[in-house]
């Protein structure tokens, strides 16, 4: 179907909302409570647009587009309304961006800058607040909560746990933890938070500034979730996700999101070791490789290739596995290769 957005004729798929139609045509309409994987609720009022022939603006995320629709997304009237809406949020939301871990990536901060929003009334002295959360992996600061309910709806709609709900109303509305015993620490809520109300509990503010994100794949179960390992000073400091990639589309479990710490462990093996008089002692690479190669050759010579076996690994890469079985088959000369697929 055809519609006109900001004076441009565009094509959109039947059944889409105005917001979806706009985004598929690269027209950006601001949102805070909207997440593509959640049912739209139109509560933040930032995605308002004007439809020709209608007096009042409507929320683009909850209004279906139709053929021949003429829409404006960025009129002075809309901009003024959005500025006011953002101002109301700022009345209670602290402006301690310098202290906030999501500074620079905060959706609210970016919109406030773009619209030049200000709180409508003088602000009372702000008191930072922290409330125990349903998992120790996440820090909850209710003073930063903007009641967009993305965390609540993610927990309900994506994870199916319903740990969170909204309490209070109007300007006092906040997310609240209503069923902590149902929480599985998956962090879907954390990744849904557009501001810094939910943050990684293990990270002091500001630590992730300057971290490098490397897109990779989780090393736990067979689902093979995609995520970004955030690294700084050669340490993994946190895991973030992208809603649009991989088999998991941004969802993770507790192990995927919070279980990476072992890679930084001081107990990691760092040097080869050879057992001497019953005790494993540090050795050089050259020495260890020589030793293994000569012992394998000796055993093969004495007892035949089939006296040697190898276990390859379902934790290692395809490349590691290919090389390992090639080594056992082509160099040792045996098919005695298996791994723990059966266990």
């Amino acid at each position: 179907m055809q519609m006109i957005i900001d004076g441009k004729t565009v094509i959109a798929e039947e059944g889409k909302t105005i917001l979806e139609a706009a985004r598929s045509n690269r027209v950006f309409i601001p949102t805070l409570c909207y997440l593509e994987k959640l049912l739209p609720i139109g509560s933040c009022r930032l995605c308002i647009v004007e439809i020709q022939g209608h007096e009042n603006p409507v929320t683009a995320c909850t209004t279906k587009a139709f053929d021949g629709m003429v829409i404006e997304t960025n009129t002075p009237r809309l901009r003024e309304m959005r500025k006011q809406t953002l101002g109301f949020i700022l009345q209670t939301h602290p402006m301690d961006c310098k202290l906030c871990d999501v500074a620079g990536r905060c959706q609210l901060e970016n919109l406030v800058k773009e619209y030049g929003a200000e709180p409508p009334m003088p602000k009372r002295a702000h008191k930072a607040e922290e409330r125990p959360y349903s998992t120790p992996a996440i820090r909850y600061r209710p003073d930063r909560c903007i009641a967009c309910s993305r965390c609540i709806r993610s927990c309900r709609e994506v994870v199916g746990r319903s740990v969170l709900d909204l309490s209070g109303n109007g300007i006092g509305a906040k997310m609240d933890i209503v069923a902590p015993e149902r929480c599985i620490s998956c962090g879907e809520c954390l990744s849904a938070c557009p501001v810094g109300a939910l943050t990684h509990a293990n990270l002091p503010d500001g630590v992730s500034e300057g971290a490098k994100k490397v897109a990779t794949v989780c090393a736990y179960c067979g689902v093979g979730c995609s995520f970004e390992l955030n690294v700084k000073d050669n340490k993994a400091i946190k895991v973030t996700t992208n809603d649009y990639v991989g088999a998991n589309k941004g969802s993770l479990c507790v192990k995927g999101r919070f279980g990476y710490g072992y890679v930084n462990s001081p107990e990691r093996l760092t040097v080869p070791m050879i057992k001497k008089q019953g005790v494993l002692k540090e050795a050089g690479w050259e020495e260890a490789i020589d030793y293994v190669a000569s012992r394998l050759a000796e055993i093969k010579g004495k007892h035949g290739a089939d006296s040697i076996a190898g276990l390859t690994s379902a934790k290692c890469t395809n490349e590691d596995n290919y090389v390992f079985q090639k080594f056992m088959r082509a160099v040792i000369g045996t098919n005695n290769i298996d791994h723990c697929a059966r266990l």
Binding site: G222, A314, C316, T317, N318, I337, D338, A341
Partner: peptide, 14 residues
């Protein structure tokens, strides 16, 4: 079960 059990099988780790 494991993250790359499918791959280890695909690669002839059997």
């Amino acid at each position: 079960g494991q993250n790359n059990v499918q791959g280890a099988c695909d690669m002839g780790g059997l």
